[in-house]
C-alpha cells in the first residue's frame, strides 16, 4: 500500500516538474555597459574671445579718404556651425564743433560707403572663396567685384547662413570704408556708427 502510494507520489512529482516550465534550458547573458552620451559645444569667438569688440573706429576723415577694419570669427567649439550676420543701430550724428558747415541732421551715413566681406582664407584681400555681403541683403562671391554702398543702405540687413564654419576653423570679417571725393561740405564734422551681430547656429545634421 505504502509503496504504491510512494510511486504515485513520485510519478506525480515528476509530472509536475516536467510541466513546470523552461527554467532548465540553456541561457547566456552579456552586458552592454558604460553607454554614454555627451553633448558637443557650439562656441563662436570674435577676436579670440566672447566679449564685444569694435572692428573699426576712425575720426577726422575727409572726402577721398579710405581705410578698413577686420575682426576674426572662430568656431571654438566641437560642432560645425552656420554663420548669420545682422547689421543694426546705424546712427548718424551731425557735427557740433561750431565751424561753418557743421550741423544738419548728419549726412555722413548717406555719403560714406562700405564694402563688407568674409575673408574665408584669411588672405587679407578679396580673393577666391571669399563671400561678399551686399547692402540689399544678398551675398556674392569672388571674382565678382567688391560692392560698395552707402552705410545707411545696410539698415538692419540680416544675412542667414552665410557660410559654414567647421569646428576649429576661423574666418576674418572685413569692412572697407571710403568717403567719395564727390561728398561735400555738408558732411563736415558728422559721424556715423553701427553694430554688427554674428550668430553661429548648429549646422543641419548630415
Amino acid at each position: 500500500m505504502k509503496k504504491i502510494l510512494g510511486l504515485t507520489v513520485a510519478a506525480l512529482l515528476v509530472m509536475a516538474l516536467v510541466g513546470g516550465g523552461t527554467w532548465a534550458y540553456f541561457s547566456d547573458t552579456e552586458a552592454s555597459t558604460d553607454n554614454s552620451l555627451t553633448a558637443g559645444t557650439l562656441d563662436l569667438n570674435i577676436d579670440g574671445g566672447n566679449t564685444a569688440v569694435t572692428t573699426f573706429s576712425v575720426t577726422d576723415k575727409a572726402p577721398g579718404d579710405s581705410g578698413n577694419g577686420s575682426s576674426t570669427l572662430a568656431n571654438a567649439g566641437s560642432l560645425n556651425g552656420e554663420l548669420d550676420v545682422t547689421f543694426s543701430a546705424i546712427t548718424n550724428t551731425p557735427g557740433a564743433g561750431g565751424t561753418e558747415y557743421e550741423g544738419g541732421s548728419g549726412e555722413l551715413g548717406a555719403n560714406a560707403e562700405i564694402a563688407v566681406y568674409i575673408d574665408v582664407d584669411q588672405s587679407g584681400d578679396w580673393s577666391s572663396g571669399d563671400i561678399g555681403l551686399k547692402s540689399d541683403g544678398t551675398t556674392y562671391n569672388n571674382p565678382t567685384a567688391l560692392d560698395y554702398a552707402a552705410i545707411d543702405n545696410y539698415g538692419s540687413d540680416s544675412f542667414d547662413a552665410v557660410e559654414t564654419i567647421i569646428a576649429s576653423a576661423a574666418d576674418d570679417f572685413i569692412i572697407l570704408w571710403r568717403i567719395p571725393t564727390t561728398a561735400g561740405n555738408d558732411i563736415q564734422g558728422d559721424s556715423v556708427s553701427f553694430d554688427i551681430t554674428f550668430t553661429l547656429e548648429q549646422a543641419a545634421a548630415d
Binding site: S57, V58, K61, I151, Q188, V192, D195
Partner: peptide, 17 residues
C-alpha cells in the same frame, strides 16, 4: 545650439575745414 557675438560702435567721423 547657438552662440552670438557682436562688433559694436563701429564709427566713421568726418573732420572740419
Amino acid at each position: 545650439f547657438l552662440d552670438t557675438e557682436t562688433s559694436t560702435g563701429n564709427t566713421l567721423a568726418a573732420g572740419t575745414l
